[in-house]
Design a protein around this nucleic acid. Structure first.
Length: 345
DNA sequence: AAAATGTGCAACCGCCGGTCA
DNA sequence: TTGACCGGCGGTTGCACATTT
């Protein structure tokens, strides 16, 4: 049996809001607040709207200091960075961008930013390989691969690799540590835990598929340093969420989110296996994707686009701790903490 | 000029977790 | 402890407008 609807759908208005409705809602909330009950609010003020609809309208449009459009490159970078790190958790991403709503960022990502980074993939593939039967086979394989991997994970993997390629287009799997986006310690920990919980061949497979000092480093870590779960608790007590909205750091919920550590680890393992199994497909298609970066490279934006992936000081010895822009470092701590919590790690 | 196609974005939908009686 | 209610979230849809054919 389904859940009862939040309102009488037959008697509520849907669709675009009129200026009169906006005025009514805005003036009431500015004067009285929401009253702590969105469901009851429309009845109070005589709006034939669902409470949820009122809430959404207020949060996404009527609320003061809302910015629409005109995303800056810095905002682009933040969005990309966080998307790769935590996926489509728009509320958390929005919390890092004052004046932006999760809906706005989500739309911006889906309609522009994602295409900017990934969207030319198909076109470039076709241009480069017009008459190649092998490429037709490759495309088929790639599509199959794409379908098999969750779109979020796939996009993040692609972005990860494309950013790497941008910095060093002549060596996909070279051993230059500075090329690899450095992992946050918590990310390393996640990988470490997932590997500890899988068979010992997994790290060898990872190193084989993506040979890099970073993976090698992770291998060493996993062999020598047991993970101390209490560290997470310490982090929890230190308010590493920074300026993040308290509502944004609730445990992960919703579709596709694991409810136990075993499920989380299992998913990590599964996605890693799929990545490894399809390594060759990815490797051959990466070359077709070079021009995906040209747009990001224009206007001297390359450095800015990648500043949060590289160590500004030029120190390439550390594989983990200096990869994040200092202004958001504490916030990132919180984000990954949240990520860990979401995976039950 | 008209039709087809693409794009951007506001709004809706359904699910989930927290709260409280 | 349980279940209803509510807020919040991410995914998706639908429509207006822009661009291309």
């Amino acid at each position: 049996m389904g859940r009862a609807p939040c309102c009488d759908k037959a008697n509520v208005k849907k669709g675009p809001w009129s200026p009169e409705e906006d005025t009514t809602l805005k003036s009431y909330i500015e004067t009285n607040g929401t009253g702590g009950n969105w469901i009851a609010l429309p009845q109070k003020i005589g709006l034939k709207r669902c409470g949820k609809s009122c809430r959404l309208r207020w949060l996404n449009y009527l609320r003061p200091n809302i910015k629409h459009g005109g995303f800056t490159e810095e905002e682009d970078n933040i969005i990309c960075s966080l998307y790769i790190s935590i996926g489509s958790r728009w509320s958390i991403i929005a919390a890092q961008l004052p004046g932006r709503t999760d809906n706005d960022i989500k739309n911006y990502w889906n309609t522009r930013l994602k295409k900017k980074l990934l969207g030319k993939r198909k076109q470039s593939t076709n241009n480069t390989n017009n008459n190649s039967l092998m490429m037709n086979q490759k495309d088929t394989d790639e599509n199959s691969y794409s379908n098999s991997l969750s779109s979020s994970a796939l996009e993040r993997l692609q972005l990860h690799m494309q950013l790497q390629t941008l910095q060093n287009p002549f060596g996909f799997y070279n051993n230059n540590l500075s090329v690899w986006p450095k992992l946050h310690p918590s990310q390393e920990k996640m990988i470490q835990i997932s590997l500890q919980n899988s068979n010992n061949n997994t790290m060898m497979q990872l190193q084989s598929a993506f040979p890099s000092p970073q993976v090698e480093c992770l291998e060493n870590i996993s062999n020598s340093v047991p993970f101390d779960a209490s560290e997470n608790n310490d982090n929890n007590n230190n308010n590493h969420y920074g300026s993040m909205d308290a509502s944004s750091v609730a445990p992960i919920r919703g579709q596709g989110v694991e409810k136990s550590s075993n499920e989380g680890i299992q998913r990590l393992e599964n996605e890693l296996d799929e990545i490894l199994n399809n390594r060759n497909i990815i490797a051959t298609t990466m070359e077709d994707e070079f021009d995906c970066f040209k747009e990001m490279n224009n206007n001297g934006s390359k450095d800015q686009s990648l500043i949060w992936w590289s160590n500004e000081s030029g120190d390439t010895k550390s594989g983990s701790s200096n990869s994040w822009d200092s202004s958001t470092n504490l916030i990132q701590e919180g984000i990954f903490q949240d990520y860990e919590l979401g995976y039950g790690l």
